[in-house]
Design a protein around this nucleic acid. Structure first.
Length: 884
RNA sequence: GGGGACUUAGCUCAGUUGGUAGAGCACCUGCUUUGCAAGCAGGGGGUCAGGGGUUCGACCCCCCUAGUCUCCA
């Protein structure tokens, strides 16, 4: 049975049991503390914890998940995959253990013809929490599992909690026996390889307290409303039903593995190391495909970095398999074809996925080339030092700074008969990890507990009136000071204000929060920040400027009109620039993030190279033409599929409700899903001026621009500056650049000429200098001060010239000059003098000390200087004396 | 968010106790040879990313800024 078929049967089965079929949420988790959706229940957590009321009593989903915690284990054991799909059925205060067990048994054992999976009842085993007599009773009553195949396990195995105070409860797991060929008898307790866990039923019935670990906490009370959360690993069931050995061999994964084997000429199953690499490729390619499909682009932090690591590990595995050529094009196409049945949207996203992976592969191959160079010199120097082990520092440097994977280093070192000091590499690695962790911990301290907002969210969502009006009347529902609900607040206090409705826009979608005031009878608050701590709930952080107020007070929320206009201009400008960017660069240039506030906008987008100044001008021009065209801006609500059909650009990393808001500028000219506030016609944006374009990391660029009056002001400033420069150049703004270039060339030429003339002038003194030559011991010595020396280089060249004219006798030339009021000294010797023992370096060192400075050099030439010019005669005398 | 590294001629890169900035390729001139990366000789080309500091003296050491790469969280 195909994986897609199992998925379909799952959803159909639970739909027939009155479950709401919820489409898989994006892999990009809505919870900011999670990088990815790591489990099937993640999208339902707010309903489980009671933060947000559940919109349905029963739900089912097949959720795509990514987990990279045990990325190193992928392929080594066959139990880990970085991407997997989790079938789940959920009850929020509705049915409990009885139905959960009954549904599970029915779905697993019902015949294939009747829509079930038709698994052999004799092969199924069950584990329950040791004290959960209720569950054991229900299994015996509702299923055909005999008591011998029901095993009790402790908290570590069969008790679920989030690791923090909150809901918790026992679970019951269903296992499939693959038969004696896979291990020993005795059920899951004895062997989890032979007995494969396929389904975990979590009975959320208690509230747990503080504690650490899986089994060290207190059970506080029964939950008022009990929940069911189950998870069936789709891949596991698929490989069991397809009669293959593991998840890498199912229909959604195997084609990639086969292609990788074909490309490398390896046979799957022939060699353990190669098998691991083939599985890594098959797994990582699929994960990367799905991540990019959900809008992640490779980057150097967060989700982007996880994706990059998956891609690079794939390249590395292919290289270890002996394939050095680019292969992503074929691997990803194959993976897409294997997955597209289950995820049709991959078809439309594929062009973008393809460009992304090709660019990333190319970039990494480049990195590997430069890393190889460093590695080869390190190997050469290690060998020439006679060592047998490449040290951990070098290996770590290669990894940390040049992105060169450790196992490639090991492989290449082995070819040169060197081993690698892995221990010290690992030590350095964990050192770096601790550094980053310590820092993260420091920064995280500000995180507040969101549960305090939960009780307000239970009263409903905050309705946002800010699209229509700037001022609204509202009622105070709650006040929070330092994370604690209070009933009133007086002047000077900073308080979080929860209202039933508000005209204030909370920061989201890249748009910064509104500024303004909240007023009421006898009191006034200045709004500092507006956030949505919980989906649907707006919290105003404000300082009480005057008076006192409390819960229940009537207020007026008044947004600062100028601020809002500025914010709207900037946000609309962001859409305009995004559309212009895509017109100029094509649809692969996709916004990956944005930020805007009055007067300023910033747009991050996926793109591999710096934009030329022509392209930047083009984007600016398209944007400003759209502004001039006075396009109408409108917003309307529609369903997500409708919006997509309409060609609206959905921004990844945002999760959307069933009804989404589409903002259009000029109809189809720009269509984006967006909840922000906008101007009503594009001309109100005024002006967009791009100020900067830079890299955020490889594969990602950032465009910054000023908007409206800010743009005008910056242009004005630039114009004033340019006019001033032109004036100083005695030129016009249009000719200033040429003029400057000419002047610079001229200056360079003149400097060169001047230096030549000055040196020429200096050489006129050569005859005099030669004449001053005296004989000291058996050296011909010139030791004198030279006048009119322009700089140290000239003095040096003069000394060399003088020496070369002395002829074939041991010669020492010591010249001094005063430069910028400080004495400078040059000593040169010829080879005969050096043979006699004269060393320029020693002479300079000694004489410079007399001058109050230092100096040095080699035997043939040395230079030095000091601070006291009056000591020059003394220093020269000392040189002559020391030669004697 | 925290680290590490890089930026030198048009291109690819060398350059250690801080003491005259180099190579290969490309370019120009001449000779030789008329052929596939030709040879020989000569030559031009440098704000050593930008700014500040330490020093008699900084491509080199320290600080700041910018651009780029990279690892970790």
């Amino acid at each position: 049975m195909k994986t897609a078929e199992i998925k379909k049967r799952w959803l159909d089965f639970f739909e027939s049991k009155e479950h709401e079929v919820v489409p898989s949420a994006s892999l990009i988790s809505e919870d900011p503390s999670l990088l990815f959706t790591v489990a099937g229940m993640v999208p339902f957590i707010p309903y489980m914890t009671g933060l947000i009321p559940a919109p349905y009593k029963r739900a089912t989903s097949v959720q795509k998940c990514v987990r990279t915690l045990d990325i190193e284990e992928v392929g080594k054991t066959t139990r880990h995959g970085t991407f997997f799909q989790m079938n789940g059925n959920f009850s929020f205060g509705d049915y409990f253990k009885r139905e959960a067990i009954s549904y599970a048994w029915e779905f697993l054992t019902k015949s294939v013809d009747d829509g079930g999976l038709g698994l052999d009842k004799e092969q199924l085993w069950v584990t329950v929490f040791q004290d959960d007599e209720e569950a054991i009773g229900l299994w015996l009553e509702l299923s055909e599992v005999p008591i011998e195949r029901i095993q009790r396990r402790g908290m570590a195995d069969n008790y679920w909690s989030t690791g923090q105070p909150g809901p918790a409860g026992p679970c019951s797991e269903i296992y499939y026996d693959r038969g004696p060929a896979y291990g020993i008898d005795g059920g899951p307790v004895a062997d989890e390889n032979r007995y494969i866990e396929i389904w975990n039923l979590v009975f959320m019935q208690y509230e747990r307290g503080l504690g650490t670990g899986k089994d060290n906490f207190e059970i506080l009370a029964e939950l008022p409303s009990k929940n069911i959360d189950t998870g069936m690993g789709l891949e596991r069931v698929a490989f069991l039903m397809q009669g293959v050995e593991n998840l890498y061999e199912i229909d959604q994964v195997r084609p990639v593995l086969d292609l990788a084997a074909g490309l490398s000429g390896k046979t799957y199953g022939a060699n353990l190391d190669d098998d691991v690499r083939l599985r890594v490729v098959a797994d990582h390619v699929r994960s990367a495909l799905m991540l990019i499909g959900d809008g992640v682009s490779p980057g150097n932090d967060g989700r982007g970095y996880v994706l990059r690591r998956l891609l690079r590990r794939t390249v590395r595995a292919m290289r270890l398999l002996g394939v050095n050529e680019p292969v992503f094009g074929r691997l990803f196409l194959t993976s897409k074809n294997a997955m597209v049945d289950a995820y049709p949207e991959l078809e439309t996203e594929y062009p973008r996925i393809n460009t992304t992976v090709l660019a990333e592969e190319e970039a990494f191959l480049r990195t590997l080339v430069s890393g190889t160079l460093v590695l080869e010199t390190a190997i050469a120097s290690t060998k020439s030092a006679g060592a047998k082990v490449l040290d951990g520092e070098t290996t770590f440097l290669l990894h940390d700074t040049y992105g060169f994977p450790i196992d490639l280093t090991v492989e290449i070192a082995e070819e040169s008969c060197l081993s690698v000091d892995r221990d010290s590499f690992t030590a350095l690695m964990s050192e770096q990890r601790n550094r980053a962790k310590a820092d993260a911990k420091l920064k995280k301290a500000g995180n507040t507990d969101l549960s305090v907002y939960g009780e307000f969210r239970m009263q409903g969502v905050t309705s946002f009136t800010g699209y229509e009006e700037l001022e609204s009347s509202a009622r105070v529902l709650g006040l929070i000071v330092d994370g604690v609900p209070v009933s009133s607040a007086n002047a000077g206090v900073i308080v979080d204000v929860i209202l039933d409705r508000t005209s204030f826009y909370a920061e989201s979608g890249g748009q910064s929060a509104d500024a303004g005031v909240i007023t009421g009878d006898g009191f006034e608050l200045e709004v500092l920040d507006v956030q949505k701590p919980v989906k649907g709930l707006v919290s105003h952080k404000a300082i009480v400027r005057k008076g006192e107020f409390g819960v229940g007070s009537q207020v007026t929320t008044a947004v600062d009109a100028d601020w809002r206009i500025g914010a709207a201009q900037a946000h609309s400008a962001t859409h305009v620039v995004h559309a212009a960017l895509r017109q100029a660069l094509g649809p692969t240039a996709l916004q990956s993030g944005s930020y805007n506030k009055p007067g300023y906008m910033r747009l991050d987008f996926s793109w591999t190279a710096a934009l030329s100044s022509e392209t930047k001008s083009e984007i600016e021009e398209i944007s400003n033409l759209a502004i001039r065209a006075d396009l109408a801006v409108s917003a309307s609500f529609m369903s997500l599929p409708d919006a997509r059909n309409w060609g609206a650009v959905a921004l990844f990393g945002e999760t959307y409700d069933e009804s989404v808001r589409v903002v259009q500028i000029g109809g189809p000219w720009s269509r984006e899903l967006c909840g922000g506030t906008h101007v009503s016609r594009s001309s109100q944006i005024g002006l967009v001026s791009i100020t900067n374009e830079s890299s955020v990391g490889s594969g990602s660029r950032r465009l910054e621009a000023l908007v409206g009056m800010e743009a005008l002001h910056s242009l004005t400033q630039e114009r004033v500056l340019l006019h001033k420069i032109a004036e100083q150049l005695k030129s016009t703004p249009s000719n200033a650049s040429d003029r400057l270039e000419m002047l610079l060339t001229e200056v360079k030429e003149m400097q060169r000429e001047l230096a030549a003339v000055q040196f020429q002038q200096l050489t006129l003194q050569i005859p005099q200098l030669i004449a001053s030559m005296s004989t000291v011991a058996n050296y011909s010595v010139i030791a004198t001060e030279v006048a009119n020396v322009p700089n140290a280089d000239a003095l040096r060249d003069l000394a060399i010239k003088v020496r070369d004219q002395i002829g074939d006798v041991p010669a020492v030339v010591a010249l001094t000059a005063v430069l910028d009021g400080k004495p400078a000294l040059i000593v040169v010797t010829n080879s005969k003098a050096q043979a006699n023992g004269a060393k320029a370096g020693d002479l300079v060192r000694m004489a410079s000390q007399i001058l109050g400075g230092g100096g040095g050099g080699k035997a043939d030439i040395a230079q030095g200087g000091g601070t006291d010019a009056s000591k020059i005669p003394q220093a020269l005398a000392a040189i002559t004396e020391s030669l004697r």
